[in-house]
């Protein structure tokens, strides 16, 4: 059983990490860094799950984190494949180049 304060600290850390990742997604143009930032956001949410799981002594939090890890791995592999295709087409890693689907 974890004390209440630690949970709050864990959540705060997770929130801060999530916000950092979000800002990274929005401000970085390099598509690799966007992917990295998404990873940070995923991990931040994973941390929140773990902290909450520890607080109530339940294994669910850690189960969720394993799901997230698996999902993140899949996402990265697909994402990186897309990045390679993108680089082939645009000769650049700038995400804004790929704005062909504008309305």
């Amino acid at each position: 059983m974890m004390p209440q304060a630690l949970l709050e600290h864990g959540f705060l850390l997770a929130g801060a990490l999530f916000a950092l990742g979000l800002i990274g997604v929005m401000v970085r143009r390099n598509i690799l860094f966007i992917l990295l930032s998404i990873e940070i956001m995923l991990n931040a949410s994973g941390l929140a799950f773990v902290a909450a799981g520890a607080r109530w002594g339940q294994p669910d939090g850690q189960v969720m984190f394993i799901f997230i890890l698996a999902m993140a791995a899949a996402e990265v592999s697909v994402g990186l494949a897309l990045v390679i295709r993108l680089y082939h087409v645009f000769k650049s890693l700038d995400a804004d180049c790929a704005s062909r689907m504008k309305g």
């Binding site: 979000l22 929005m26 966007i34 790929a98 704005s99 062909r100 504008k102």
Partner: peptide, 13 residues
């Protein structure tokens, strides 16, 4: 409305 569809993922994010 179609102006908002800029095609930039960062804007969408």
């Amino acid at each position: 409305l179609s102006l908002t569809q800029s095609g930039r993922i960062r804007w969408y994010a």
